[in-house]
Design a protein around this nucleic acid. Sequence first.
DNA 1: TTTTGAGTTGTTCGA
DNA 2: GTCGAACAACTCAAA
Length: 480
Amino acid sequence: MSDTSIFWFRHDLRLTDLPGLVAAAQRGPVIPVFIFDDRLGGDWAIGGASRWWLHYSLASLESSLKQRNGRLVIRTGDSVTALATLAEETGATSVFCSRQYQPWADPQERQLKTTLERQGVTFKRYPGTLLFEPEAITTGGGTPFKVFTPFWRACLKQPEPSFPVDVPKLQFPEQWPTSVALEELALRPTAPNWAEGWEALWRPGEQGAGDALAAFLQARVQHYGEGRDFPGEPNTSRLSPYLKFGEISPRQVWWAAQEKRRAAPENASAIDKFLSEIGWREFCNHLVSQFPAMPDSAFNPKFEHFPWATDREKLRAWQRGQTGYPIVDAGMRELWQTGFMHNRVRMVVASFLTKHLLSHWREGELWFWDCLLDADLASNACSWQWVGGSGADASPYFRIFNPVAQGEKFDKDGSYTRRWVPEVADLPDKYLHKPWEAPPLVLQSAGVTLGSSYPRPIVDHKTAREAALAAYGTLKNLAL
DNA sequence: TTTTGAGTTGTTCGA
DNA sequence: GTCGAACAACTCAAA
């Protein structure tokens, strides 16, 4: 006796290590489904760069299924309605999926369960997009952790995440339900095509994810410890977009890293450092699942009274990489041109926006959401709040990154800055990160005219720093 | 309940 | 050039 099941793909666009897919396959034929609902999440509906990635990710999943004589059924609109309809059309008796942790996921899953059960269809969700379930990691008092270090220590005391499961042997139905063609979703930009050339930079999909992980563990992880801070050097994993769409699971990353540790114990500390970044992904997702307001309002309520400034022109200069601080502009242009930004530089530009410009962290959160291929609701929200000072375990407010010092420290040879800000590339290292201090002759021979070929700084560091400290001071005596 | 130790990523200043 | 201290209390987590 075999029953047809629907497997509902969301941010788990892979075939390996999907316990829900294994369970579905054990019952009989499986109908793999992706539902594109570009309204779910409101402000946090899928952003522009992520749409581009999603296109190729779905194409890749579609082709893996085809190789197994299957298909990917694509539908659009509200997922509950779409799944209920599909179950009725196909006679499927169960729907399986991997659990998601966005604030809207749980209510939607509950609604789906009720709707399906009324039709006599069962609904089951499986873990798969995190290492640990949020309910499993609590303090001694049963409350969620608000500080990373004890959180991660508690995670490491848990039984190890289960070993990744293989792709199950898949059977498919004899008759396929109708599907929207991937092209019809129009996920890629056309006019203008700002993603021109991105195909050469990234290889979305499960295969690309596995290759990226293997390449990182093979050749780069040993330099990760300190090397991760240098944006001009390729020492980071660049796994974030793959993890965001679930083309690789954190359990696969975890176990591959453990294997590397056994093979190369001398790299243990760099590997731990890398895994703790996966830990931050967990921490953020656990926090947002417990505090669903995190993407929209300050975790520390005092910050709802913070005197944020609104200067559209300065915000725009930041967005376009025209602040006059080369390391900031380099980061913002890398983001705009490639859909990605090195982690160190993310902190520098975020500190600049929230502290030098006193712009609300939500402005940065929204911009990153639209521009980043790896835009993850939880990581984005928590990281912006962390930098802005309002988040869990947040950066103290007096920690204001000096964009000149950061450039000189982490991009000493200027390779990163010169790549993204070519108009200052001919300046000597000494002035690369502070062109306004260069003598006129130096500027001239580097072909730099401040104010026309490259902007003067839109704010003065020292003045802006003092203003930020003063703004923070207004919160100090604030009674709640 | 109270106490205690600790907390991702920095900067500036003065010796 | 290098080093340590101050920055500012505050909240969290565990004993």
